[in-house]
Simulated assay, not measured.
Amino acid sequence: MPRTRRTGRITLVGGGPGPADLLTLRAAKVLTEADVVYFDRLGPTEDLAALAPRATFVDVGKTPGHHKVSQEDITARMIDGARGGLHVVRLKGGDPFVFGRGGEEMSAAVAAGIPVTVVPGVSSAIAVPGAAGIPVTHRNVSHLFTVVSGHAPLTGKEYRHLAGLGGTIVVLMGIGTLPSLVAGLRMAGLASGTPVAVVERGFSHTQRTTIATLGRIVSASSACRNPAVIVIGDVVDLAQSNGLAVSDFLEDASLQSA
């Protein structure tokens, strides 16, 4: 009997906000089965050799203003690998469907007739503020939150919409556009005294939180760099009032020894 060729497939995996132990059990299992892993610069990149011992690794990470591999090329390589019978894993920081272009990759796989599944991940939009002691919602403070991409400035209509919604605004990778974000929100009517936090390098040994008002955050965060999560709203005051140190709050031995 002739040998049948193994059917390839693609799995989009959310890597969470960084540490390997914040991967889901399903994500960890999928990685052990991977033949090739296309990974970004965020997520559990330092632990890949242990997480996916039989896989080949391809770094397709993007940095602000520099994409070493285009999205079209990434998608084409993944589909080619799956057509060749490989189990291709696309590992992203956070969740694949939160500004991760997971929807585009899923659609391309479906159009090519490639089996594709998705493993959700812990989104940094919620986890990183939490690591700084900031809940994105809190009873009698905020009953909603909005997640915004910080890669490009918003329109006037979007600023007015955000300012009028109330609640908490969470901005991912928004250090470069922070001045325009602040100006847009203030022009849309958000009070200059609104608390703002910039949480850099969440869940790492060098995690740092900078807190100021909307009117002063641009100057206060001049030394801040991505990766960072920006939180705007009254929930920021909860972190200050609780006075929690990151190591104590997370109860993580590795952070406590840092």
Rank of each mutant, 00 (worst) to 15 (best):
M106E: 13
F97Y: 12
L154I: 08
F99L: 03
I74S: 00
I134D: 09
A131Y: 14
L144P: 05
G113S: 01
V148D: 00
G81E: 02
A197W: 15
A82S: 14
S142W: 05
H161A: 14
R208D: 00
H161T: 14
T117N: 13
V36I: 14
V147H: 12
P53Q: 01
V36T: 09
S219F: 15
T117S: 15
L255N: 00
G189F: 10
L190G: 04
R160C: 09
D80H: 07
H67R: 14
M78A: 00
V141G: 01
T11D: 10
D59L: 09
G184D: 08
I134G: 04
D248M: 09
V89F: 05
R139E: 05
R201D: 15
A239Y: 03
R160K: 15
P19N: 03
A245H: 15
S221V: 06
C224P: 09
A239N: 07
I74V: 14
S107K: 11
Q207L: 05
T209H: 03
G103F: 01
L23N: 00
I126H: 08
K68A: 14
T213R: 13
T168S: 02
H66A: 13
E251K: 14
A223F: 12
V36Y: 00
G121S: 06
E105S: 09
V116T: 10
T117I: 03
V199I: 15
M106L: 13
A111I: 11
T206R: 12
L244R: 13
G166F: 01
P227K: 02
K68C: 13
D47G: 02
L250Y: 06
D47F: 08
F97T: 09
L214H: 03
P153G: 07
